[in-house]
Amino acid sequence: MFEGVVKIFVDSVVNYFQSTSDKNVKLGSPYLIENTDFTSFDFTGMIGISGPYRGMVYFTAPKVLLTHLLLSLGEKETSKENMLDLVGEVANTLSGNARAELGQDFMISVPIMIEGSTSNIHLPTALRSYVIPIYWKAYSAAVVVCLDNT
C-alpha cells in the first residue's frame, strides 16, 4: 500500500502536534505489521474509511501521553472521558486532514473510542497495516493505517 498515503498521515501527525503547546514531536520510520499482530496502548480512537480506500485508521496512546496532551490543549480535566474524547478527536483530525490530499471521496466515519485491549477488533487478515510511531515528550504513541483500494 500506498507509501504516498502513509506520507499524508505522517504530515497530518506533525501538523496536529504543531497546534499544541509542545511542538517537538518526532516520528519513527513507518513499518508494516500483520493485522493479527496489532497491539495498542491504553486508549484508542478509530475511524472507518470508505470510498476509493476502505479500512480503518487508529490513533492509540498511553494514559500518560494523553494527560500531557490534554494539559497542552488547555484542558485541566484529565478524566477517562476526556481521554476517550481526545483519542477520537485526534483520529478524526488526522483522517479529516488527509482529505486535503485524497479529496472528498475519502469518506470518514465518526470516531469509535476504546479503553484497554483492542483484541476484539478484527482487521482483514489478507491486509497488513502501516504503523507510524510517534514520540512526544518522553512518551510513545502510534497511528495505524489499514487501507485497501482494490
Partner: peptide
Amino acid sequence: VSALSDIAT
C-alpha cells in the same frame, strides 16, 4: 470548524 480539509467540503 472541521478537520475535513478538502476544498470541496
